[in-house]
Write a protein that binds this DNA or RNA. Structure first.
Lengths: 163, 163
DNA sequence: CAAGATATGTCAACATGACTGACATAAATT
DNA sequence: AATTTATGTCAGTCATGTTGACATATCTTG
């Protein structure tokens, strides 16, 4: 009933830290992407296609939570410029399974390298147990109801797509 | 020289967890904002004006890293609809110091409540030391060169703007 | 005091990446 | 054979970002 039901307990600190941390984290990649004429949308598509080879278009729509129309534009560019290839599904020939090309992997790797540098810097004074705590926190921040294919893989049975 | 200079050491797990965690974290507020006809831009402006009362327009531009034109649009809406008020600076009468109204505070509080719920859920199995580790990680993810006024407050001397 | 710098506001024009809703095609399922 | 599914595409719109130019009030400096 009261207008500010929990004035003292709001997590202002974490809310702001998340804002600034994410701003600078994606900023690393943004800078590099400009040189390719790409934006964040391209990065996200490239990232997930690289990490989960054979991803269907429908899966990608679920993961990115954007519309077909929005995805179509960036996907077409990435296909045209040879960063991604499509293969017709074996079982279901309507499906277009997506794979990163060598060119695509190089780009994703470069961007992941920049972000990894930042993460390593941030983790350097945190012991392995603490690093696992950070992972635990991030995992627990994610909605578990209605998980998409990628989240199922991440949470599912401990199995990872690569490495 | 090699095309993928550190194939094995990239932090794919953290990179993806950050993506999903942030997606769902801002998703909480996005949903609520629709009811007000506002977007994320409005939320960010409201948040920082509320948290750092008397912020100058120039400070806000630094923090949000957007242009005057972009800020002007959303700020005008928030002023017109009574979520924020401007006061002329005492020392420098060119400055427009920004303050949240009661209406503005109510909105920010509501959104922060949603995000706090998610953070509390994520933190519930993490002990105080672990929670401090999470903060340490997030702080270390932020660029410290060229800090804006808000970051100076956050990092500066341990002093916090409120509470 | 006059001149220049600064803080803010505003204009036009444009780009990106999201959206909706409709429709087309091919292939699978019933 | 009819329906559903997976994908692609069209037209139009919106929110939020950009640049560059310019106006005004006010502060600072020579």
């Amino acid at each position: 009933m009261s207008p500010t039901p929990r004035a003292g307990e709001l997590r202002w600190d974490i809310i702001e830290l998340l804002f600034f941390a994410y701003r600078d984290f994606v900023g690393d990649a943004d800078h590099e992407l400009e040189a390719f004429g790409f934006g964040r949308a391209h990065h996200r598509v490239m990232h997930f296609v690289h990490r989960y080879p054979g991803l269907k278009v429908a899966d990608l729509l679920d993961v990115l939570r954007i519309t077909k129309q929005s995805l179509g534009r960036v996907l077409k560019q990435l296909l045209d410029e040879g960063y991604i290839v499509q293969k017709t599904g074996n079982n279901d020939r309507r499906q277009r399974l997506l794979y990163a090309t060598a060119k695509g992997e190089a780009l994703v790797g470069k961007l992941a390298g920049l972000q990894t540098d930042r993460i390593n810097r941030a983790m350097q004074d945190i012991d392995p147990a603490g690093q696992e705590t950070v992972r635990q926190f991030l995992r627990a921040m994610i909605d578990r109801d209605d998980p998409d294919k990628v989240l199922e893989t991440i949470f599912g049975s401990g199995k990872k797509p690569r490495e």
